[in-house]
């Protein structure tokens, strides 16, 4: 039950954040989507041992987070959610990749340690970027951007409607679950033998609700041709943001910025 309540809260928390009004929120949704995609592709394009090359990529989400005012707590919870399978993959590297790569006195760092850390950093960066995208862009703006790149209308409408109904059906499931637990000693979950009637009832309620929703939509003109709202044009700030952010991602991909800075620091230390 706590899971269900938590999911409802998560859904609304991101929606509230996305409705903010900061320079980042005001950027074109297409620009933010493009930058996030380039960011993800460049981050995952590194080999699993290139931990040092990944670290500069923290710059983008950290700056975006502070400029947009997205809370750290929420973002970290999402990173934690994404970890289970990734941790398994990371730990397997620890076990199977035992070749030594770095010796510091008596301490030997194996390739597995390096790749495990790299997998965790990759997870952190990718989840961070995606969460930030949704924290600064309302879904409806994002779907508008998808329409412009000619993703089939049926898919987009389906996505928008599903997003809208999830909250309602989660509430429905939450009410049913509360009623079940109040009548039943079982506290952890439903008994397997009750799942058929429970989920079946939820499905029938959902179906009936779909009928009512359709009638309500028809009353409000659904199905008649209507003019899509004019998409907002790109401004020079959007172009600058896209060029800067994508340029930074590509720079970090093709130039080992960390190494260059490290050498400079090293040179200064020698002097």
């Amino acid at each position: 039950m706590a899971d269900m309540r938590g999911k409802i809260q998560q859904l609304y928390a991101l929606e509230q954040l996305a409705a903010g009004d900061t320079p980042i929120h005001r950027l074109h949704p297409g620009a933010k989507l493009l930058v996030t995609f380039v960011y993800l592709v460049t981050v995952v394009s590194f080999d699993r041992f290139q931990l040092g090359r990944l670290l500069p990529y923290l710059i983008y989400p950290v700056l975006l987070m502070s400029l947009s005012g997205a809370p750290w707590g929420l973002v970290m919870r999402r990173v934690a959610l994404a970890l289970p399978f990734v941790v398994l993959a990371g730990l397997s590297n620890l076990l199977f990749d035992r070749a030594p790569v770095l010796v510091m006195g008596s301490l030997t760092v194996t390739a597995g340690v390096l790749s495990c850390a790299s997998v965790l950093v990759r997870t952190f960066l990718t989840v961070l970027a995606l969460t930030l995208l949704m924290a600064v862009t309302p879904l409806l703006e994002l779907t508008m951007a998808l329409r412009r790149i000619h993703i089939p209308e049926q898919l987009i409408t389906l996505l928008e409607m599903t997003y809208r109904y999830i909250g309602a059906l989660l509430e429905e499931a939450f009410s049913m679950s509360t009623a079940y637990h109040l009548r039943h000693r079982q506290t952890k979950g439903l008994e397997l033998r009750h799942m058929g009637s429970f989920v079946g009832n939820l499905l029938l309620r959902s179906f009936d609700r779909a009928g009512r929703i359709y009638s309500a939509m028809k009353c409000r003109g659904y199905g008649r041709p209507y003019r899509q709202p004019t998409p907002r044009p790109w401004r020079w700030t959007d172009v600058v943001f896209t060029i800067l952010a994508c340029g930074l991602c590509l720079l970090f991909r093709f130039v080992d910025v960390g190494l260059v800075v490290g050498r400079v620091i090293g040179g200064l230390a020698v002097c």
């Binding site: 109904y165 499931a173 397997l192």
Partner: peptide, 16 residues
Amino acid sequence: AVMAAFVFAAQMINFT
């Protein structure tokens, strides 16, 4: 869309 939302809600129901 409602059926998709149903699947989402059904995934939240844990059973023993």
